[in-house]
């Protein structure tokens, strides 16, 4: 982080040309709008397909680092018998464009889980082989609350470069060597006037975010409260909130077709933590929803010093029944320990 890179300013056509130049040499993933369906990260074939609007992708960038179904090993057979073959690590260098600050920050939280005491070779390899180029938000959604979670729509944590669209120009904040490899010589350096413009633009982006959420300290005081039953009553027990969350990382090990896979799991599902005996320590929605709230705003904070939430608002925006975790946690009854 100590190394300082210069910001660059380029026009729209030049940005497209830079992306076009990448397409021939790397696998490039970027946001694409599917009419009537939303914005999705997809492998890019044409640089002009890139979506540079204000909308957010439905799925976060997480899936490119923590795959929904990661194969660990495969059982094989040869003349001398059966053996296990470890799944190879993907080697291709890859460029992902379009991540928002919250999604990239989500990766810095996942780093604490998958690249700390425990080293997950798949996750770490995906982080290493990827250059992550962010796009700063200028039109936050009503469900966004990143600034309340210690983030900001203009921060570049977890990224290699961050793009700010200002008028018909793009200012590129180069954050790492990987980012510099792509944008180091693109366009020109910012002059004093452009620097001022960028600073005031950044301020505007932060101020555009209106929702503020206060997560109370000492949430554990509310653990035994009947509040969680009421708070979770409308939950459908689907996987929308957990699967679309940039930080949720619970998984299940699944054996199929002679392969061992690590598949996403989610605490909202009824069979989350269901034991083979039939016992489930989280038998109802109350315990499962509370698990989600506490993993994000209590346990993770105790273990790693930060909330396991980046305020991207996806779980609220896409919840089929409008359950709002920020509201639920902010209103938890800390004085009613029982």
């Amino acid at each position: 982080m100590s190394k300082k890179f210069m910001e660059r300013i380029i026009g729209r056509e030049e940005l497209i040309r830079v992306i076009e130049g990448l397409l021939g040499n790397f696998q490039v993933v970027g946001p694409r709008e599917l009419p009537g369906k939303g914005v999705f990260y997809q492998p890019m074939k044409n640089a002009r397909d890139i979506y540079l609007g204000g909308g957010f992708t439905i799925e976060p960038v997480k899936k490119f680092f923590l795959s929904p179904s990661e194969c660990f090993f495969e059982q094989k057979r040869n003349e001398s018998g059966e053996f296990l073959e470890e799944a190879p690590l993907a080697g291709d260098k890859r460029i992902i464009i379009g991540a928002r600050s919250c999604e990239a920050r989500g990766l810095t939280l996942l780093d604490k889980v998958f690249d700390s005491d425990y080293k997950d070779s798949f996750y770490i390899n995906n982080r290493k082989r990827t250059t992550l180029i962010g796009i700063s938000c200028d039109s936050p959604d009503k469900d966004c609350f990143c600034t309340s979670m210690g983030g900001s729509p203009t921060e570049g944590r977890g990224m290699d470069a961050l793009i700010f669209e200002i008028g018909d120009q793009f200012i590129i904040e180069v954050i790492s060597d990987k980012g510099s490899d792509i944008f180091g010589s693109a366009g020109s350096e910012l002059n004093e006037e452009q620097k001022k413009l960028w600073e005031s633009d950044k301020k505007k982006r932060k101020e555009a975010l209106s929702r503020k959420v206060a997560v109370p300290d000492g949430l554990d005081k509310a653990f035994g409260s009947p509040y969680w039953e009421r708070a979770s009553s409308a939950c459908l027990s689907c996987g929308v909130c957990t699967y679309l969350c940039p930080t949720c990382h619970c998984f299940d090990l699944v054996d199929e077709e002679r392969k061992r896979l690590r598949c996403y799991d989610g605490c909202a599902f009824a069979d989350f933590t269901l034991h083979a005996s039939g016992e489930n320590p989280r038998p109802t929605k109350k315990e499962r929803y509370r698990q989600r709230a506490y993993h994000k705003f209590d346990y993770f904070k105790k273990n790693f010093g930060e909330n396991l939430c980046v305020g991207c608002g996806r779980c609220i925006r896409h919840c089929p029944v409008k359950i709002d975790i920020a509201d639920i946690v902010a209103n938890a009854p800390l004085d009613k320990e029982s």
Binding site: K37, F40, L236, C238, G239, L244, Y264, G266, V321
Partner: peptide, 12 residues
Amino acid sequence: SRCIRCYACRQV
């Protein structure tokens, strides 16, 4: 191909 297997369709 876009299905994320969240089973929201089933739960709802």
